[in-house]
């Protein structure tokens, strides 16, 4: 379970108005939530705060991971040491160890795949995360093959990461996140740069995962298809939070929030 309590974030302490203004919401295990909002509403900022890249200036995040609810992660050779942890992150709890724990539970896919993939070879890039947690290379390789097969990209393993199409890059980036066995997956506008077919492929893959999902997107159709619940951000505040269908069909509400 991911609990966001009065989360406030500023890029600069001296700024008058915060980019995220006391956000509060809770996401249950296995829940799939769409995060929508106009450009500049704070979607990316929220995600970066949730993985500890940005420090909250107020409020905080509580992450409770109850192992029974995510059976998929118990049998794999997970790099996580603390499975029943409660991780608390706020202004005063932002040390290396805490953030490390947070990151081992939350995987994030960046908006631009070129930011994410940095090793020259696809297989080296995917193995980068597990190597940071000192996982045995043979075990990494086994899990890599499994994940690549699940994403339908086994053929890309030995390719150069700079020579991939945008859709392929996106899936390789996703593989690099999935191999970390996060139980929460955050995706920042994953459908941008993709053609319709690649979008549908990715959507099907995301629907099939049993991870908790937070999905920032501008594609309402795909959002509704994948996520039962939607959170609408407007100027750093939660403007609406509820069933996707209700929110995404509410033209008035969307227009008021710049969409």
């Amino acid at each position: 379970m991911l609990q966001v309590n009065d989360l406030t974030v500023k890029y600069d302490e001296k700024d008058a108005s915060p980019v995220l203004d006391s956000l509060s919401f809770t996401i249950g295990d296995g829940e799939k939530v769409a995060l929508i909002g106009a450009n500049g509403a704070g979607k990316s900022t929220l995600m970066l705060s949730l993985v500890g890249v940005l420090t909250p200036t107020g409020g905080g995040i509580v992450l409770k991971h109850d192992d029974e609810t995510a059976p998929e992660h118990t049998h794999t050779n997970s790099p996580k040491k603390h499975v029943h942890d409660t991780v608390r992150v706020d202004r005063d709890h932002h040390d290396r160890k805490t953030i490390g724990q947070l990151r081992s539970h939350i995987g994030m896919l960046f908006q631009n795949p070129d930011d994410q993939i940095f090793m020259p070879l696809v297989k080296d890039d995917i193995a980068f995360g597990p190597a940071n947690y000192k996982e045995d290379p043979a075990a990494t390789e086994r899990r890599m093959d499994e994940i690549l097969a699940r994403l339908g990209i086994s053929g890309l393993k030995d390719r150069l990461s700079t020579k991939l199409s945008d859709g392929e890059k996106r899936l390789v980036g996703l593989a690099g996140v999935l191999i970390m066995n996060p139980f929460i997956l955050m995706l920042d506008e994953p459908f941008t740069f993709l053609d319709r077919r690649a979008q549908r492929t990715l959507a099907e893959i995301l629907k099939g995962l049993n991870h908790t999902l937070l999905l920032a997107t501008h594609d309402f159709h795909l959002a509704q298809n994948i996520c039962g619940r939607t959170i609408l951000l407007h100027k750093g505040k939660v403007a609406a939070d509820g069933p996707s269908k209700e929110i995404l069909d509410d033209e008035d509400l969307l227009r008021r929030c710049g969409l």
Binding site: V53, G100, S104, M108, F110, D115, A131, N132, G176, V177
Partner: peptide, 22 residues
């Protein structure tokens, strides 16, 4: 900015400034 985002993405995958070479 790009390098900064690349670095952030690395942090998100458990990178802590050291690297144990296989």
């Amino acid at each position: 900015e790009r390098a900064d985002r690349v670095y952030q993405a690395m942090l998100c995958r458990g990178f802590d400034g050291t690297w144990d070479w296989v």
